[in-house]
């Protein structure tokens, strides 16, 4: 369970998260929508401790993320995260990209890491690309590789930050299909996305962020069907 309690975060003078309260249960798929600059990415990087917070508390399976005694490197094994930018390690083949962290962080044997990597690459539909370098992959394939790389750590949670936003339109579908597959398998996921149709289909709940505030959170039928927050109504009208 990821529990976010009254989290506040500023960059200099700019308050980016203004007291966020949110709990994500095991097995839940939560999507976050909202305008650019509303603090969605910042929240995800706070959850895995890449960013410090100014107030409040985030706990992951009972571990307080920003506690001084927390081993963040250990905590991050539980939290897979995939970003908008393609973050392939360009000097490693696809297989090596996926094997690196299991080998070095989890200290798996080569055989063990390789078996897991091949399984995860097959899972995201890259079974035939294991030996190529990432520069030979399309953007969609690179994002799927990044998903496989995160899955190879056997995380309990997956965080996705606009993973389709940098893709050509014709490549968006293949990545969303991978996310749908994960959701159908019961993975606990937080997806920041601009794909409203996708959000409507896969989510258990959808949260709308506006200027650092979670303005509304509801099941998709409710949030899209009968939005209450006036900013959300405007946002939805603009994206349709």
């Amino acid at each position: 369970m990821i529990k976010i309690e009254n989290v506040r975060k500023s960059f200099g003078q700019l308050e980016v998260l203004k007291g966020i309260d949110l709990t994500v249960e095991k097995g839940e798929v939560l999507t976050i929508i909202g305008g650019s600059g509303s603090g969605k990415s910042t929240l995800l990087t706070c959850i895995n401790g890449l960013e410090p917070i100014d107030a409040g508390r985030i706990t992951v399976d009972g571990t307080v993320v920003h506690d001084k005694s927390t081993d963040l490197n250990k905590l991050r094994r539980k939290l897979g995260i995939v970003f908008q930018q393609f973050n392939a390690f360009p000097h490693l083949t696809v297989l090596e990209n996926v094997m690196l962290a299991p080998r070095k962080v989890l200290k798996q044997s080569r055989a063990e890491a390789e078996a897991m990597a091949i399984k995860q690459l097959g899972h995201v539909g890259l079974g035939d690309k294991v030996d190529v370098y990432p520069s030979r992959l399309s953007g969609g394939q690179q994002q799927r590789m990044a998903i496989a790389r995160a899955l190879a750590m056997s995380p309990g949670y997956m965080l996705f930050d606009e993973v389709t936003s940098a893709l050509d339109p014709q490549l968006v579908g293949e990545v969303l299909d991978t996310l749908r597959l994960l959701a159908s398998e019961g993975m606990t996921m937080i997806c920041v996305t601009h794909e409203m149709k996708f959000a409507r289909e896969v989510s258990d709940r959808v949260a709308f962020f506006h200027k650092g505030v979670m303005a509304e959170i509801a099941p998709p039928e409710k949030l899209f069907g009968a939005p209450e927050d006036p900013e959300l109504q405007k946002f939805l009208a603009a994206t349709h």
Binding site: L50, N73, R76, R77, F83, M153
Partner: peptide
């Protein structure tokens, strides 16, 4: 790129 390094750290490195 900072984003590449961040991806590494996010994997627990």
């Amino acid at each position: 790129p900072g984003t590449t390094r961040r991806a590494g750290r996010s994997l627990g490195m």
